[in-house]
Simulated assay, not measured.
Amino acid sequence: MRKYEVLRAVVILQAVCMVVLTVVVIVKVWPGNERQLGSQPPANVGSEEDPADSAGVDASEQDDGRRIVARVGKDTITAAELQGELYKQYGEATLRSLMVRRVIDLEAEGSELSITADEQTRELARMVEGYESESRYYEVMLEQLGMSKEQVLEDLRYRLLMEKMIIRSVHITDEEVDRYIADHPEEFEARTQLHLQWIMTESLKEANSVLELLADGEEFALLARTYSVDAFTADAGGDLGLIDVDDPFYNAEILETASRLQIAEMAGPIKVDGGYAVIRLIERQTTTAMSGRKLHDAVRKQLALAQGDSLAELEDALLGKYDATKLE
């Protein structure tokens, strides 16, 4: 699967999770907190009603859309306003995602396509490879993407189904597979990648101050957003993503230092172009070299996916085939 398509799928799934989470917050957290604290729902802006007159009104008794979920000074934000804003930002993508999953199920049923337990296990093993354990992989997915184990497995099932639909009409010969392996040996070698965060400062003094704050228990991501001068990563908490241990485009001292760190361990200051860096190792992923039938099957699938329709094209085709229509 092409990388940009994987990212697109993850972003859509995150949007779905965000909407669901927000509904949970609206329905359960806010009313529960108000009852627990014994506070009164704030009066609407411009209302002349005496706050004392509504002392006994519980927010949960209000109409769902008028329920107050936040207060800013004398102003209020209602559930309807929040839901409307969420729909404007994520509604289209979320609705499309739901429709796509429905038509995938219909196509799978009509074409008698399914994902066996063995296929899911093999793909999951590939995804988990390089993590300390399968449970650690699920922890990382929850921490970084907000996806539960059940959501990860469900997303995996849909992805494998879509891949089957894409490659079912694409024929790749043994000669094409062998030629690709011979031309791209570096793709199938064992490799180690480091998932890093960093905080870049202009001076050594600032870097040491950051280290002192970290030693006092301050959160790395928060300090990165506050103090890092790297505009490309500061807003993301200093996240540099996965980097090959021998990547020639990254500071060699940073990679050498990071390769010796334990998970969650920090180091610095390290001199870099433009200042000094403090780094933290989030994850170390090590993949093993593939060979034999496993290698040929993986390359055949990779070539078929490259020659077949893109995920977006498949989605559009299925939505059209099953007359999926958004109702205004």
Rank of each mutant, 00 (worst) to 15 (best):
R66F: 14
L156Q: 06
E81G: 00
S310L: 05
S291L: 04
L37S: 06
K149Q: 11
D309Q: 15
E256N: 03
E34F: 08
E143W: 11
V16E: 13
L82W: 04
A9W: 10
E313Q: 14
L314Y: 15
A52S: 14
V69I: 09
L314I: 08
D178C: 01
G38R: 03
G56D: 14
E189T: 10
E112S: 11
V27L: 10
E176C: 01
Q62A: 12
Y137Q: 05
G84W: 00
L98W: 05
E176P: 03
D64V: 12
L153S: 11
M290E: 14
D246V: 03
Q62V: 13
R284D: 00
E112F: 15
Y138A: 06
V140F: 01
P41C: 07
G46S: 02
D297T: 03
K74A: 07
S228M: 08
E176Q: 04
A221P: 12
A277I: 00
D174H: 04
L314K: 14
E61R: 13
V103P: 00
A9P: 08
A207C: 10
N44G: 12
G91L: 11
G241H: 00
Q89Y: 02
R293Y: 10
P269N: 08
S60V: 15
Y227L: 04
A221D: 11
R179Y: 00
P269M: 01
R136V: 04
E256C: 08
E132P: 13
A234W: 15
T286I: 01
T257G: 04
Q193E: 14
A9G: 12
K271P: 09
E256D: 04
E134F: 03
N251L: 05
I166S: 04
A70V: 05
Y180L: 02
S54M: 15
V140M: 08
Q62D: 13
L160C: 02
E175T: 09
V103S: 02
N44Y: 10
V103N: 10
H195E: 02
L37H: 09
E109C: 02
E163Q: 01
D63E: 14
E150A: 14
R2I: 04
K149Y: 03
E123D: 14
L196H: 01
A117H: 09
Y227H: 12
E109M: 07
L86W: 04
G65P: 15
A258S: 00
I282R: 00
L327P: 09
Y138L: 06
A215S: 07
K74D: 11
